[in-house]
Design a protein around this nucleic acid. Structure first.
Lengths: 330, 330
DNA sequence: TTGTACGCGTTATCAG
DNA sequence: CTGATAACGCGTACAA
């Protein structure tokens, strides 16, 4: 019935008579007693919390990453502070200060895009950091990102395997790393099939359905020889499909289409349903959580690690089995 | 140079010589010293954290709510634990236990839908709770939800103001409260214009683009007299627009369309761009944060509070000014 | 104006 | 096997 004994009873520690242990347990349950983590953490010098600093205002990509992180961390009984900085450096500072004051065991930084960003400023606090779906410009940071080259490769490979030879690529802004890398993966697959030149048509624009619609119409207006379309994301693919349908193309027979992102409410709803590339962000988040645990335990690691994407086959590019089988290509 | 003095210096407390205060500050900055919130919180008996328990696996609605909450709470220097239960009662229990052990000052519960759910089980811990975009079946809970009746009302009113008289409604599953309430708002507006009977066609289905597409096609096949369509969400509206366009209807001249949700990457991308109802979830989240602060400070409140929706006018229903001016109608 | 001692709720160590 | 005590890092009265 003394304070120290209770601790041992509830934590299965030390030598206690089973009867005492049970008596304490019963009393604890009856009183609704819960150990106070704050006090516990104070003496152990750890908070069993991590901060998730997100720059992605709508959570397009943060949500699955976050889910994965939580999944990996819940086994270690670690809770997650969500901090949406919304790209505002001022908010980021405030959140960071709060996290450090709360003595988080680690920090995960997620982005809206994978393009390298300035590192977060820890002010000398030795807190482990991992960038998930984000990259830091500092050399020794640990960054986890999807393998966009491999993603572009398996998308293209799938189109080529189904016998297509005249590809075009409608994609996002040329200055984004993901755009460049997906295009590089496409070129790599084409080259392996001896189709590297002349280079296929590549249209840079925005990540929107309207851009996909406009670009597809332009392709048809130009009267290009075309039997396959690789779209930089699912919204673009949706717009392209609408344009092609309106102009009377039979899909996928006349033109096969592959998208990117596997945004479910989009990809399953196009007519035909969209074959697309999934970045497996939940898995990336889980990996981020696991590696953060590693850093917390003192196992050093750094560098950019790319995780393979997966082809999700629906109807927009025929019904072939996947070929790339997910091995990394970058 | 002593421990207690530092506390006073950094917290602007007690009487100290300005020089000493400055000296301490300089040293603190140099050493990168940060007060340990855990220790502070332990003595103050508050953690300055709240838990956000989300049942919405993809964050469709949780994200804006969450953003608003964070916004409201950051002024009170409160951080947010994100817990995604994904509808799994087991996960919810675990998260809840963790939150209570961490001594959160309050809990916000968000849902995927507003339909009443069982209350969270606090096990007798006196922690304030507010349900945001969620409702509890218990009577005295504080629940904040959008006013779907008013939302349906302003959508319909807008169509009627532009001279339309033959409305139909394509919406989600009949058993969802939001579906019933939006429909009720529609009926109310129609009744006020003497158009309550015969009742307009209402199609219940799923929240998907493909359902909108199918339902619109069915309407045209039936050869119904139709000059306006109120869709239960933007995905449905997108599908309906595609179907109408394919069948040669001129939009919005032949048929005016209003959606629901103001999901930006959808509503701005339809052809024509979609006039739709915004639930202002970020505002709802902010309100949830504010009211949770109220509960924490001991200001009791309870009951279901509905927040008005706002009509966002684009091109799909003509270019009329909004009429309902946002006053609550439920 | 500054230093000292106590308490917050735990766990760990040691003495009984 | 169980009870007492120090320590975790801070704020805060109170003593110097």
């Amino acid at each position: 019935v003394t304070i120290g004994t209770v601790s041992k009873a509830l934590n299965e520690q030390g030598k206690l008579r089973p009867e005492t242990r049970e008596r304490v347990r019963a009393a604890a349950a009856r009183l609704g007693f819960r150990p106070n983590d704050l006090a516990n953490n104070l003496v152990r010098g750890r908070s069993f919390t991590v901060g998730l600093l997100s720059s992605d205002p709508w959570g397009y990509y943060s949500i699955p990453v976050m889910t994965g992180i939580e999944d990996a961390l819940s086994d270690a009984r670690i809770s997650v502070f969500l901090c949406s900085a919304r790209g505002d450096p001022e908010r980021e500072r405030q959140h960071l200060d709060a996290l450090l004051a709360k003595r988080v065991d680690g920090i995960v930084v997620t982005g809206r895009r994978i393009d390298a960003r300035p590192p977060i400023d820890l002010g000398g606090a030795g807190v482990p950091v991992v960038y998930a779906f984000a990259q830091s410009i500092e050399a020794d940071a640990l960054c986890l990102v999807p393998d966009d080259v491999q993603g572009g490769y398996i998308a293209t490979e799938h189109l080529l395997q189904s016998g297509r030879r005249h590809l075009a690529h409608i994609t996002g802004p040329a200055e984004q790393e993901a755009v460049r890398r997906r295009r590089a993966g496409m070129m790599q697959a084409l080259a392996e099939h001896g189709l590297g030149s002349p280079e296929p048509w590549v249209g840079y624009g925005s990540w929107t359905e309207s851009w996909g619609y406009a670009a597809a119409n332009r392709l048809l207006d130009d009267g290009r020889c075309l039997d396959a379309l690789f779209c930089g994301n699912d919204h673009i693919a949706h717009g392209a499909i609408d344009a092609l349908r309106e102009r009377g193309a039979r899909l996928p027979d006349d033109i096969a289409i592959v998208g990117f992102d596997n945004r479910v409410r989009v990809a399953t709803e196009t007519r035909p349903a969209l074959t697309t590339v999934d970045m497996e962000l939940e898995n990336l988040g889980r990996e981020a959580g696991l590696r953060l645990l590693g850093l917390i335990d003192g196992r050093a690691q750094s560098g950019v690690i790319r995780f393979p994407c997966r082809l999700v086959i629906r109807q927009s590019a025929g019904v072939l089995a996947p070929s790339g089988n997910g091995r990394s290509r970058s």
